[in-house]
Simulated assay, not measured.
Amino acid sequence: MLDLSSGKARLGFGLTFATIASFLGFPVLWMLSTAFKPGAEIFVRFPSLLPRAPTLENFRGVVGSGDLPLWLGNSLLTAGGAALLTTVLATLAAHSFARFRYRGRRALMALMISAQMFPFAVLLVSLYPMLQAAGLLDTRIGLTLSYIVFALPAGTYMLFSYFVRLPEELIEAARVDGASELRILWRIIVPVSIPGLVTVALYAFMWAWNDLLYAMTLITTPSLRTVGPGLLMSQLGEMRQDWGAAMAASLVASLPVIIAFGLVQRWFVQGLTAGAVKG
């Protein structure tokens, strides 16, 4: 373990931390700066790091266009629905893997986790004809269902790691009292597993919110577009490069995720670390 008591160790740790923070934070700083720059400052040979004449015109144009609220609403519906469905399905699957012993349990769990090995573009090749056969192409429901592929395997594994740490005596006591398995799950296991459930829900929400490939492929109607495709199709293209408006819209589109993470950060961290600690 690194000994931070010496001055050289603290200096080395500080320099390393500052380097990593600068590398990760510079794109965010550049996005903020570009969002507040007028067009004359963006398209120059040597752009400045900070805007010389800050303006809110990019934000006024984005908010006043009428399209961004529609895209945000579509993203909230699809990402929120995907987070809810993923959390419910992952809870049921993880409970089955953690509490029951049946033939093929380990193989089934390994098969589910192995889905993470394939690129999402490969999974889209299989999803597209399935949604087409079901009549769910170019619909919010179809896009929401496709997002389950992103987070369900990882969400199931995270909740499995959480559920196996719960005291078996608590479950057996409920069974002795005559409680059914579903009642045990929803009245005993779920209330004490809030950090794990929040982690899975936020993980699924962020995956769906940041998606571009599936939304671009499965949705073609402009009024059903989510934030990613909407910004790409409206602000950036072969004949238009409005980087100021694109950066301003990206900042506005990032607010729901930032707010959600800020509200549930404590449970999110607990849920992530729970599977790594033996109870």
Rank of each mutant, 00 (worst) to 15 (best):
A18W: 10
T19C: 15
M206S: 14
S250E: 08
G66W: 09
A134L: 14
G275E: 00
L255T: 11
G12N: 11
R103V: 13
V198H: 01
A249W: 00
G244F: 00
M109K: 04
P195Q: 07
F268N: 02
V277I: 08
M239E: 15
L85M: 08
Q116S: 13
L50I: 13
I219S: 02
L111G: 13
Q265K: 09
F118A: 09
I259R: 09
G61H: 10
G237C: 07
I188D: 01
A18F: 12
S22R: 13
L76Q: 06
L29W: 10
P54T: 06
Y203H: 06
A79Q: 01
P195G: 08
I141S: 03
L202N: 01
R101E: 10
D211S: 13
V192N: 12
S254Q: 09
I171H: 05
W243D: 04
Y203D: 03
A107T: 12
R105E: 13
G73T: 13
L108M: 09
P229M: 03
K8D: 14
S5Q: 10
V269K: 06
V277A: 12
L123M: 12
L202W: 02
A35T: 05
G39W: 02
A79K: 02
P229C: 07
F100H: 13
G14H: 14
R240H: 11
G135K: 13
